[in-house]
Amino acid sequence: MSAEKILAVDDSASMRQMVAFTLRDAGFDVAEAADGQEALEMAQREPYRLVLCDVNMPRMDGISLVRELRQIPSYKFTPLLMLTTESGPEKKQEGKAAGATGWLVKPFNPEQLVATVQRVLG
């Protein structure tokens, strides 16, 4: 069985590396994108089972990415998780309104990340 494909989107290379490394270590197949625009283009080319995205990014932010992804038929039900440091409720609301499945509050440790992803992917 091939590993589940996850798309990790963050403009911070260290965060992206951490997320990707952790998830690969847990047996997932992870692709990386540095901003929403790049992620959207990658998502259009091939399907991912889960998208993890940062909120604040250049070119296209995470909320716009979620909104765009939800409009692609094959991403209608795909879990889209936001990685957010904003503890205030507005960003979460905004993300939810755009169609996000849920969020993960930064800072998180690798174990939390793996647990959340495994929970979502069942």
């Binding site: 590396q17 270590d25 990386e32």
Partner: peptide
């Protein structure tokens, strides 16, 4: 807390930032 499966450290090298 939900039990977590142990993540075995693998020798796979990190891919450098996909810039």
């Amino acid at each position: 807390v939900a039990a977590l499966p142990a993540a075995a450290p693998s020798k796979a090298a990190t891919r450098p930032g996909a810039d």
